[in-house]
Write a protein that binds this DNA or RNA. Sequence first.
RNA 1: GUGGGUGUAGCUCAGCAGGAUAGAGCAUCAGGUUGUGGCCCUGAGGGUCGUGGGUUCAAGUCCCAUCACCCACCCCA
Length: 437
Amino acid sequence: MVAVIKAPRGTRDLLPGEIEKWHYVEKIAREVSEIYGYEEIRTPLFEHTELFQRGIGDTTDVVQKEMYTFEDRGGRSVTLRPEGTAAVVRAYLENHLNSGPQPVKVYYMGPMFRYDRPQAGRMRQFHQLGIEAFGSSDAALDAEVISYTYDFFYRLGLRGLRVEVNSVGCPQCRSRFGEALKSFMEKYEESLCPNCRERLSRNPLRVLDCKEQKCRELLAGAPSIYDYLCRKCSEHFEQVKSYLNLTDVPFEVSGQLVRGLDYYTQTVFEVSPPGDGQGSLAGGGRYSNLVEICGGPATPGIGVAIGLERVLLALQSQGVEFPSVKKERVFIATAGDDPAGKLNREAMRLLLELRRCDLPAEKDLLRRSLKSQMKQAGRIGAGYAVILGMDELENGTVVVRDMLKGEQSEISRDGLTEYLKAMVQIREEIFWKAAEN
RNA sequence: GUGGGUGUAGCUCAGCAGGAUAGAGCAUCAGGUUGUGGCCCUGAGGGUCGUGGGUUCAAGUCCCAUCACCCACCCCA
């Protein structure tokens, strides 16, 4: 036997039993998006490599070591999207959404790809829900995006989340602050962790969220970003906080919060699950230059990306129950010998008839014994079994067995559909009422 | 890219200081006399013990390498 091929590292299959949870999360995502006025956009799963290099930033880890980049047969360098924002910006420009009514508010949901080493809540193919809003730099929009994120989590049933908000200012504020931070930290260079020494020259702001104890202690005396925000950025941040206070989002201001993607300006935020687990559930912020970087006119934008695998993990660890809406199913079984295939043909007719009437129905597909068929009916959770034998065929009847009660009765073949429809409806009402309590 | 852990049937695991045809529970399939599920009983199928080397009279059991998975770091969702 040849070896079975396994799914590539960092990818996995979502099987029946688990996929229903995804459907539920996706349903809530669409509902919240609609309520907040975001419409769906779908962009390709791969783009020209250059889009991500320019959009995300050449110096970021994502671009430097995590991209799935390859040449297609035409010699073009393409990359499996590692995140959603750059592609949405591209689509916004390419489809001239910038010359339509503003703001433009869209959401996306789908797989992203990063060549990382897999671990809990991190896959090479993972899924994000995200929103992007273009054309407005109003602080109310910042609050809206954060509120959307929180609302999505809240509706799913997640509680106790930590929402951190910060402002990294515009490029001017940032570079002034970076210099200040750098000259401060350089005084203690020998006490810094090797990583931070590296960061000081490359991207000084990143030392702010170092987890090393020593670095953290030093940071206590470090300059604050808030002393370096220009008047405009400072005012914007004040407004964001004040709008946010009008919502029920329990946020905290965190001057240490820095995000790893280069395009963020001003507002940045992150949502993490309770406890000291590092992985955040969502991260986002404002990007005032990204549209320009991608070749468009200066256009403000803001967005968030939510990691759905992590959301599922958080739901699981908080013990959130998923609603299961199961439709009643009917199983058609044939009884006794059927050498001429008469029963089987009649079962096929019944099957079609029930399905035409929107009754989910199954029949035996393995030519098994009645006993096995009943077993199968029970296994798939059929509410009713229809049993058809030679006697019934001759009498123009059929036996309907209530699989929950274990009772059965013979009814006329012609009235089967109406009978089952009525029975199923009654039972669904009972389920519905039970679910209400 | 770095570090740590794990790797025996589909699943969860046993396998005692290395020694006889590698086991259990669950799952699957078939039966428990004529056309009936969920309980019970019986039986069957299913494993090159991740892979490749090595040590040994003998390795699932020891050593090395490799791969995969898990966890953590980096970074991020």
